[in-house]
C-alpha cells in the first residue's frame, strides 16, 4: 500500500529581485496513513515552503515548483498536476492546514460561526441548522467550554489559545486524512502550548489522521511524532524513527540542534548555539551545506556534496560515513 502522502524530489525556487533562490532542493518525504511525521530545522531551511507546496499555496508571483511530484491518497494522484478546481476540493477537505499565528489566521471582521459554517457549506453543502449543529459539536471536540458563545464571537474577543482551537476546528471540519500543522504552538505561551499539543495528538489518534508537524522545537516533535525529518538549507539531512534520531542523532546538524536545547535545571548553561546562519540558497556549490558551521567538518566535506545514506538504527543521513558514525578526526 502506498503512503498517504509521497513527496518525491520536490524542488522549489523563488525569484527575488532577479535572483533565483533554491528554497527546496530534491526533498523526498512520505507520510503514511495515520502516521505523525515531524519536520524540523531552523527558520529559513525550507520547512514551510515544502508544506505550502503540498497544498500549492506558494506566493503566486515569486514561488515556483520546478521539479518533483507530490502524490496523495490511495490512487496516488499527483497534486502538482491537478487543475486548480480539483485542488480546491482537496484543500480543507482531504488535506487541511493549521498555521503558526492564531492571532492573524482568522478573518477579523467575520464571526467564528460564519467562518466555520463556510467550510461546511463549501465542502459538504450543509447550511443553517445542520452546519450550526456540526460546528458546535466540533468546537466542543477541540475543547472549547462554551461552543455556542464562542461560535458567536469575533476573533478579537478570543484568546490566542481559543483562536488556535477554532482554527483547528475549521481544519478538522471535513475530517481530513492529512493535517499539516505549521508551528502550531510557537505563538502561544508554554502552558497553552502543552494543551494544544495534547489536543492535537488526541484528535490525531481518535480519527487515525496523518499529521505532518512542522516545528523548530525538537521537544514538541519528540513528544508527538513517529518519524522525524531534519531539514537544512533546503534539503533533508537526516530522517528516521523519532526514538532513534533524537536519541542517537547521526548528522552533526541534528546533534547541534539537540545541543541548542535548554537543559532543565542548568540555568541556560546547557544551551550551545550553532554559530553562523543558514545559507541563503544562492550559492549551492559542490560541498556539504552545513560544513561551514559544522564543528567536526573535514576537508572532504568541502569537496563534494554528500548524498543520503542509510543510517544505523534506520532512516537516512546526509553525511560522509566517517563523520556520521561519530569518528573524530
Amino acid at each position: 500500500m502506498p503512503p498517504l502522502l509521497d513527496i518525491e524530489d520536490l524542488e522549489v525556487s523563488f525569484d527575488v529581485r532577479g535572483e533565483t533562490i533554491h528554497a527546496v532542493d530534491t526533498v523526498s518525504l512520505t507520510v503514511g496513513e495515520g502516521e505523525v511525521v515531524g519536520l524540523v530545522g531552523e527558520s529559513g531551511c525550507g520547512k514551510s515552503v515544502t508544506t505550502l507546496s503540498v497544498l500549492r499555496l506558494l506566493p503566486r508571483r515569486t514561488g515556483r515548483i520546478t521539479g518533483g511530484a507530490i502524490r496523495f491518497g490511495d490512487d496516488g494522484i499527483d497534486l502538482l498536476a491537478l487543475p486548480e478546481k480539483e485542488m480546491n476540493r482537496i484543500r480543507g477537505a482531504k488535506i487541511s492546514m493549521v498555521f503558526q499565528e492564531p492571532m492573524t489566521a482568522l478573518n477579523p471582521v467575520l464571526t467564528c460561526a460564519s467562518q466555520l459554517d463556510e467550510v461546511y457549506r463549501l465542502h459538504r453543502g450543509w447550511k443553517g441548522a445542520t452546519a450550526r449543529a456540526a460546528s458546535i459539536d466540533l468546537l466542543a471536540e477541540v475543547g472549547i467550554a462554551d461552543p455556542v458563545a464562542t461560535r458567536r464571537s469575533y476573533p478579537h474577543q478570543l484568546s490566542g489559545g481559543m483562536r488556535q482551537r477554532v482554527l483547528l476546528a475549521m481544519a478538522l471540519a471535513c475530517r481530513p486524512r492529512l493535517l499539516i500543522a505549521d508551528e502550531p504552538t510557537t505563538a502561544l505561551d508554554a502552558t497553552i502550548q502543552a494543551r494544544i499539543l495534547s489536543l492535537l495528538s488526541d484528535v490525531q489518534r481518535r480519527h487515525r489522521m496523518a499529521l505532518l508537524l512542522i516545528s523548530h522545537d525538537l521537544g514538541v516533535v519528540g513528544a508527538l511524532a513517529d518519524r522525524v525529518a531534519v531539514m537544512y538549507a533546503g534539503e533533508i539531512v537526516e530522517e528516521g524513527p523519532v526514538s532513534d534520531v533524537l536519541v542517537t542523532p547521526r548528522h552533526p546538524y541534528t546533534r547541534a540542534l539537540l545541543r541548542a536545547l535548554p537543559v532543565p535545571g542548568a540555568g541556560g548553561g546547557g544551551m550551545e548555539p550553532i554559530e553562523g546562519n543558514v545559507p541563503d540558497g544562492k550559492a549551492a556549490g559542490a560541498m556539504c551545506r552545513f560544513a561551514p558551521r559544522c564543528t567536526v567538518a573535514r576537508s572532504e566535506c568541502f569537496r563534494g556534496h554528500p548524498v543520503l545514506l542509510g543510517r544505523p538504527g534506520g532512516g537516512l543521513c546526509r553525511c560522509i560515513p566517517g563523520v556520521m558514525n561519530g569518528d573524530r578526526r
Binding site: 480546491n88 498555521f99 478573518n107 477579523p108 482554527l167 475549521m170
Partner: peptide, 25 residues
Amino acid sequence: REFILAGRALGFRAPRILFRHILPN
C-alpha cells in the same frame, strides 16, 4: 495577511476570498 492564506488552504476560491473575506475589511 495570514487569514487569506488560511482561507485558500481551506479550499476557498478567489472570488469568494475577494468578496467575502477581503472586501468586508
